[in-house]
Computed example of a mutant assay.
Amino acid sequence: MFNIDLTVKNTPFPLSVQRKSAEDADAVYQLVLTAMRSGTPDIIELKCEGKTEKKIAVRASEVSGVQVIQKEGTAAGGGRPPGFFALSAE
């Protein structure tokens, strides 16, 4: 399973959707990247393959970053992918 995480301006947490194959994850990554480069306020709509009821819509001009991470089983260390800052209370 692959997670595609979107960093949105003025939002403290990433939005994410899942894809089952690397090819599908790369297609979503390219779609978001193309929308970000366009500079127009178009809406990007994405559905999650992992949780079929999950859908997100975001303005392309508000996306500041996108990353693809392969999710492997259970992750030690909280399950958060590298690349995003997270605070934890210990």
Rank of each mutant, 00 (worst) to 15 (best):
E72R: 02
K51S: 05
A22L: 08
V8F: 00
E53F: 12
K71Y: 05
T52C: 08
T11L: 11
A27E: 10
G50E: 09
S61M: 08
I4L: 02
L15V: 09
I69K: 00
R59N: 04
K51H: 10
V8R: 06
S38F: 07
R19G: 02
G83H: 01
A57R: 07
S38T: 13
S61G: 14
E53Y: 06
T74R: 11
P41L: 10
M36N: 11
E45T: 13
Q18C: 04
S38Y: 03
A60Q: 00
A27F: 14
Q67T: 07
G77M: 15
L33Q: 13
S38H: 11
D5H: 15
I4H: 05
A89Y: 12
G78A: 11
K71L: 09
S61T: 09
F2C: 01
E45M: 10
D42Q: 07
A89Q: 15
Q70D: 09
G79Q: 12
F84T: 10
E90P: 05
V8P: 04
Q18N: 06
G73Y: 06
E53W: 06
V17E: 03
R80P: 03
E23G: 09
F13H: 06
T52A: 11
G39V: 02
Q70E: 12
E53I: 14
D26L: 13
P81Y: 00
V32H: 05
E62T: 06
G65N: 11
L6Y: 00
N3L: 10
K9Y: 08
T34D: 07
G73K: 06
G39W: 05
K9A: 14
P14A: 08
F13W: 03
P81V: 02
F13C: 00
T34A: 15
S21P: 11
L46P: 04
N10D: 09
S21G: 05
N10Q: 04
T7G: 00
A25Q: 07
S38E: 07
I4E: 02
A76L: 12
F85G: 04
P12Q: 14
G78R: 05
S38M: 13
E49M: 11
L33P: 01
D42M: 11
D24L: 09
G39I: 10
Q67K: 02
R37H: 10
R80K: 15
I44Y: 01
L31R: 06
F85T: 11
E53S: 07
S16W: 07
I4W: 03
A22H: 03
V68D: 02
Q30T: 11
P12R: 04
L6N: 02
V66S: 03
A25L: 10
T74C: 00
E62L: 12
V17I: 13
A27Q: 12
S38K: 14
S21W: 13
S61I: 14
P41T: 13
I69N: 04
S38C: 02
V63E: 02
D5Q: 02
A76V: 15
G79W: 08
V66L: 00
T7D: 05
A75Y: 09
S16Q: 00
S21Y: 09
S21V: 08
V32Q: 03
V66T: 00
V68L: 04
K55W: 15
M36W: 15
P41F: 15
R59P: 01
V32P: 01
S88V: 05
Q30G: 01
V58Y: 03
R59V: 10
S88Q: 13
S61R: 02
F2R: 06
Q67M: 10
P14M: 07
Q18H: 04
L6E: 00
E90I: 10
